[in-house]
Amino acid sequence: MSKSAYEIDDHHDSVERYVVVAWVDNEAGVLARVSGLFSGRGYNIESLAVSEVDHERKISRITIATNGTKEVIKQIQAQVLKLVPVHKVNIYPINEETIFRELALVKFIGEGEILQKAEELCVDNKFEFLDKTSKSFIVQALGLRTEIDEFIKKIKALGTVSISRTGALAMKKGSETVKDNKGLVL
């Protein structure tokens, strides 16, 4: 019976959350190849965000949140880097040297005091209101995944909620830039 990459670890290292960032050519099939590599080897994708970051060079940035030991994450990095057309793969551990954010759009539907309590929760969290009616609102929630999770838990307890989330985004602090093998900034 085939085992997941998470079950094979003989070193008993702790499983931690990481963000894997791959800079790729923006062309058809790239996302399928990267995500297929994860599923084909038993790696779980917790969240995934992808967007073009350089229109002239047609380069997109794929950001994947996953869990694994340091050894598993290094394997993921090496395997993704072997894919064509991947230019660079960086691993961002969850620590104070990296900025992590997630965005959620949250629609709340309610009336009277319940709607007011939900609005106060959003104000307390300093989230931006994008739409308001007498029976609903949409708020933009920006923060760490744990902050967004806690907010969603609290607002769901108040009433009807619809949620759309981006997944994790990450960037290393400081003036250091990421460059491809030609020395061009990604």
Results as ranks from 00 to 15, higher is better:
83 L>I: 14
143 G>C: 08
150 E>Y: 10
174 G>R: 04
141 A>D: 02
28 A>Q: 12
11 H>A: 13
74 K>A: 14
85 P>R: 04
15 V>G: 05
131 D>C: 06
19 V>R: 01
50 V>W: 02
157 A>K: 07
63 T>E: 15
176 E>R: 08
117 K>L: 09
64 I>R: 05
151 F>R: 06
90 N>Q: 13
62 I>G: 05
26 N>V: 03
121 L>Q: 08
32 A>W: 03
97 E>F: 04
38 F>D: 11
7 E>S: 07
130 L>P: 03
176 E>Q: 11
1 M>T: 12
6 Y>V: 09
159 G>S: 07
183 G>Y: 02
8 I>E: 03
133 T>C: 00
76 I>W: 01
141 A>L: 01
172 K>F: 01
131 D>W: 00
109 I>K: 12
85 P>S: 07
82 K>T: 01
39 S>C: 09
141 A>Q: 04
65 A>Y: 00
2 S>C: 04
78 A>K: 13
75 Q>P: 05
170 A>C: 06
66 T>E: 05
19 V>M: 01
40 G>A: 07
82 K>I: 03
126 K>C: 02
59 I>V: 15
7 E>L: 10
100 F>H: 14
111 E>W: 01
7 E>D: 11
78 A>E: 13
55 H>R: 15
12 H>M: 11
93 P>K: 02
137 F>P: 09
131 D>E: 13
165 R>A: 04
141 A>I: 04
170 A>T: 12
107 K>S: 09
19 V>Q: 01
92 Y>A: 04
114 I>T: 15
174 G>E: 03
161 V>Q: 10
53 V>F: 02
7 E>P: 00
33 R>C: 05
67 N>I: 10
85 P>Y: 04
65 A>R: 10
168 A>L: 12
160 T>R: 14
78 A>Q: 11
155 I>T: 10
176 E>L: 07
66 T>K: 05
185 V>K: 10
167 G>H: 08
17 R>M: 11
137 F>A: 06
44 N>A: 13
31 L>S: 08
56 E>D: 15
137 F>E: 01
85 P>N: 07
4 S>R: 10
181 N>A: 14
88 K>D: 00
40 G>V: 02
127 F>N: 08
66 T>H: 01
146 T>M: 09
39 S>F: 09
84 V>S: 11
23 W>E: 03
1 M>A: 13
178 V>R: 00
45 I>S: 07
93 P>H: 00
95 N>I: 06
16 E>V: 08
57 R>N: 08
40 G>L: 05
58 K>V: 09
150 E>W: 04
28 A>L: 14
79 Q>S: 14
114 I>Y: 03
61 R>W: 00
57 R>V: 00
177 T>K: 06
58 K>L: 14
90 N>I: 13
117 K>A: 11
10 D>P: 08
93 P>F: 00
40 G>T: 03
63 T>L: 06
164 S>V: 15
115 L>D: 07
121 L>G: 09
30 V>N: 08
33 R>I: 09
47 S>N: 07
136 S>Y: 02
153 K>Q: 10
101 R>C: 10
26 N>S: 15
105 L>T: 11
16 E>N: 12
21 V>C: 15
102 E>N: 11
184 L>F: 09
119 E>G: 01
35 S>L: 04
135 K>H: 12
